[in-house]
Design a protein around this nucleic acid. Sequence first.
DNA 1: TTTGCTAAAA
Length: 714
Amino acid sequence: MAATLSTAIDVHFTGPKTDTKRPIFFTKHQRHSPTRRRFTIYCNSLSKSPLKSPQNLSESTNPKNPSLSDQLKPLSATTLPTTTKEQTHLLSNPKSIWVNPARPKRSVISLQRHKRSLYSYNPNVRELRLFAQKLNNCEDTESAFLAVLEEIPHPPTRENALLILNSLKPWQKAHLFFNWIKTQNLFPMETIFYNVTMKSLRFGRQFQLIEELANEMVSNEIVLDNITYSTIITCAKRCNLFDKAVEWFERMYKTGLMPDEVTYSAILDVYAKLGKVEDVLSLYERGVASGWRPDPIAFSVLGKMFGENGDYDGIRYVLQEMKSLGVQPNLVLYNTLLEAMGKAGKPGLARTLFDEMVDSGLTPNEKTLTALIKIYGKAKWAKDAMQLWERMRSNKWPMDFILNNTLLNMCADIGLEEEAEKLFEDMKVSENSRPDSWSYTAMLNIYGSGGKVHKAIELFEEMTDLGFELNVMGCTCLIQCFAKARRFDDLVRVFGVAVEQGVKPDDRLCGCLLSAVSLCEEGEDVEKVLACLHQANPELVAFVKLIQEEGSSFETVKEGFRSVISNSLDDARRPFCNCLIDICRNRNLPERAHELLYLGTVYGLYPSLHNRTAAEWSLDVRSLSIGAAHTALEEWMGTLAKIVRRQEALPELFLARTGTGTHKFAQGMTSAVASHLEKLAAPFSQSEERAGCFVATRDDLVLWVHSRTPSTVV
DNA sequence: TTTGCTAAAA
């Protein structure tokens, strides 16, 4: 399996030019920071984090047990390979352990998993479990709990107590029971009692209590084992107390205990969540160099980390590593990698990976399908999405409400109104997949982007009746819908209701309001919409007014633009600029529109607007609004005319890319550009071979320029 | 029926 997987990866990634001799790990990690550097960073970061161990911990006085950073420091300084060749070898073939005979490598991981004590059958299981249920269900006070404890059916021996403790679900009950056993003083409290209690506390995210118990163990000289540490570390992680997680990991080394692979994966995940990619890789490589054969969980941690960073090279690295170590992915690992592929923007590879997963005999679960449907929706791969949906039905693959909502979102992304309506109705009569506020929001999105005002209003009323509050996205969808239908009074009303309900307008919502402003005729409506926008983003409103004043200098506009853009989220910047340009075009301020397009380009909002090769020059307006596209087109034609007049070198072909209009926001772009080109009498015509493109030849363009102006050379 | 590690949506 692994072979086919990586073959597919190579084909997709490198194409025919695959150089098999190239180190696997040639990615950005190495480009920016080669191995040696990575180690240095890692050691520094560890030694910088101060240890806050309690006084009674013997670790700090034991020179035989240096901290992990101390252990690694001499290694990084002396034994790491220094030449590129050696680095490559170490990285591309982690199975082979690099050995320096003069300096044996110190291990960082225990290759043996902590072994559990044998479980002996307890004849009182049923009664004790029933009793535990009683405790679970009793009132949540200490007195009520102690009262029920009076009825304990068998004496709380070590085994009986463990069984009960293990069956107590709410952390409060487990904690109370644990404390009670301690007061009974019938047997010494062993590590396992602490471990079981901590597990329950972790479920309730009670890190403080866990830490108290851990310190109690230290002072009572009860051994903390790998299970204890991994529970502490994962609890800290779940409570977002990453410093604490690292701190306990270090303490573990200091006491001389080696982490086993479970603890090791847990800490890898901590560093991954902290965004310390370098550290994770160092730890990973050190583990492998110690003889560790990472399991699917470890690879899942790595894959997820790379996915979060949108780092496809990293995901490729994980796949290669799995292949070279012969690790067979399990379902969870596949799910993580699929999701990572989605985040890295590789729908094709996600599809390949999924096919291989199914071929390998695994059955996808809800999470697999959710990940994949989401990827197809975002990529607007309608065909693949529909095929997968069909397969889900015919194979009766598992579904849940999240998958259903993801399907609705996919329908919104692709514009499948009927399919969504059908699913939504099915959900209403289903047993355990009833529409929730996410489902309603997805439907609002579909009606909003499709401009179906009546359906949107109906849906909004329905969800209000059912008690679902409008969230910020639902509000944005409705506002978009009303703006398209020029129903500005309704727009203002919905905005008011939403804000009253506690919706906090975000940049997307502001973008939507700004777009509504561009659609208003000047007068009352504009003021009403601007008043809404003012509540959300007063600076933006001030800037809208500034650009419409003829007296505003370019410098003032530039400064205002800089401020507005830098105060908005990255995703919202280009839409803001597009709407601002539209506003200027609609108010007959073409000069200002050109200034704004210029500023947008300077600030990198339109990175792929112009493309030049020797054979053709193109203008790609697909990410522009119609007003911005007009402006860009004028700008481009002006530039081309100048170049023609200066008789500079020109390519054979010119191309204006408008897209095919299949994108729901890009509808009307093609006809708008067509009519604009017609007005200019420019020699561009819609290409037959290349969908969504207007083309002109060099000769036609030159003729056109000369026909417009007497042949004066500038 | 068992003391620890990976997983979810605009």
